[in-house]
């Protein structure tokens, strides 16, 4: 099932103010893949999912499944599942009953209730009511229940965000393998970049209702097109420079860049893409030991640079150093402002 979203828009009024929750949003989700939409809270992620599920109506734009538009189909006939942040299990049914009820629409279900419970490792908890389950168990139950209805696409709205860190990690891995077994096409939204990068086949960064960039987590991390994406996926140095072909002139000398360019550009360099050498250009102002690496702050005139190296580099604050790039700097696109 391939999901296509084209130029989706949704605004609403809140306290007399117009909120453009989703703006010109387009996205393609390949069959059987997990797409993660990453964005800060309030960026329109949840509204987007409600639009796809049919719980809200878009102002304009189209949503289609395998090239068939589904915009006018009510949510209960759309075949798109939605897992909420928390507490979506029905309080008056046992776990087993919830799954059985979700399954009851199908004449020839793909999985039986027992299989689903087993896949989720919840067979022992089948007779429990939601209030007798822990937060993690409830979320797992909600995901199993959604899978039971055999959605063509499963949407998940920050499903792990209310859980504590170790549990979140474990559940995340479980869910990914569950989706692989069931070949589920899914979209998950989150504000947790670690979660986004770890799980996604396709990662989309969303901000103020717009999609900033989409691609594999690696490509987005290594080649962000603008500073917002770069900053959202990790620490980044943004440096103003003057490009000439495959090099750019900065205040501390020429740097190689990843694509040819001319004129004023902004460069993105991840802190771990620097190496430190004995030298004169930069002054070390701060050093933080962070376990797996060491974080350095360097200044040269107006410019401040963040560098991450392994623990073997032995410099001290107050010393002067030079820097070298381990890979070309990334030229950000002009439109990013």
């Amino acid at each position: 099932m391939q999901l296509d979203i084209k130029d989706l828009n949704k605004s609403f009024w809140s306290h007399g103010q117009r909120v453009d929750a989703v703006r010109h949003f387009s996205l393609r989700v390949a069959s059987g893949s997990l797409t993660i939409i990453l964005g800060p809270s309030g960026c329109g992620k949840s509204t987007l999912l409600r639009l796809i599920a049919g719980l809200d109506t878009p102002d304009s734009g189209t949503i289609s499944l395998d090239d068939r538009p589904i915009d006018r189909i009510p949510p209960e006939k759309r075949g798109i599942g939605l897992v909420f942040q928390e507490d979506s299990l029905f309080p008056n049914m046992t776990l087993e009953d919830q799954i059985r009820w979700a399954l009851s629409n199908k004449t020839k279900p793909r999985f039986s209730v027992e299989q689903l419970l087993d896949m989720g490792g919840m067979t022992a908890l089948r007779r429990r009511y939601p209030h007798q389950l822990s937060g993690g168990e409830r979320q797992r139950g909600a995901i199993l229940r959604s899978l039971a209805a055999e959605p063509k696409v499963l949407l998940l709205d920050e499903p792990f965000s209310r859980l504590d860190a170790p549990l979140r990690d474990a559940l995340r891995r479980e869910v990914r393998s569950l989706f692989r077994t069931t070949q589920t096409t899914a979209i998950l939204v989150t504000h947790d970049q670690e979660e986004g990068m770890a799980l996604a086949d396709q990662l989309v960064v969303m901000e103020s209702g717009r999609s900033l960039q989409a691609g594999t987590p690696q490509s987005l991390y290594a080649f962000p097109t603008n500073a917002l994406v770069a900053g959202f996926l990790g620490r980044a140095n943004i440096i103003v420079a003057q490009a000439e072909g495959l090099f750019a002139q900065t205040v501390f000398g020429p740097l190689p860049i990843h694509r040819p360019a001319q004129g004023p550009v902004r460069l993105m360099i991840r802190p771990e893409h620097f190496e430190l050498l004995k030298g004169e250009q930069f002054l070390i102002t701060d050093k933080e030991f962070r376990g797996h690496d060491v974080s350095w702050r360097l200044i040269s005139g107006e410019l401040e640079v963040l560098v991450h190296t392994d623990w073997e580099q032995d410099f001290r604050p107050g010393q002067r150093v030079d820097i070298r790039l381990r890979r070309p700097a990334v030229v950000l696109e002009e439109s990013s402002g």
């Binding site: 599920a53 209960e76 939605l82 979506s88 049914m93 979700a102 229940r145």
Partner: peptide, 19 residues
């Protein structure tokens, strides 16, 4: 969340009301 969940499970408003 309960009613919205039930709708995305493919349940009609009538079924949701009853169950």
């Amino acid at each position: 969340t309960w009613t919205d969940s039930a709708r995305t499970l493919g349940k009609s408003p009538r079924e949701i009301f009853v169950r």
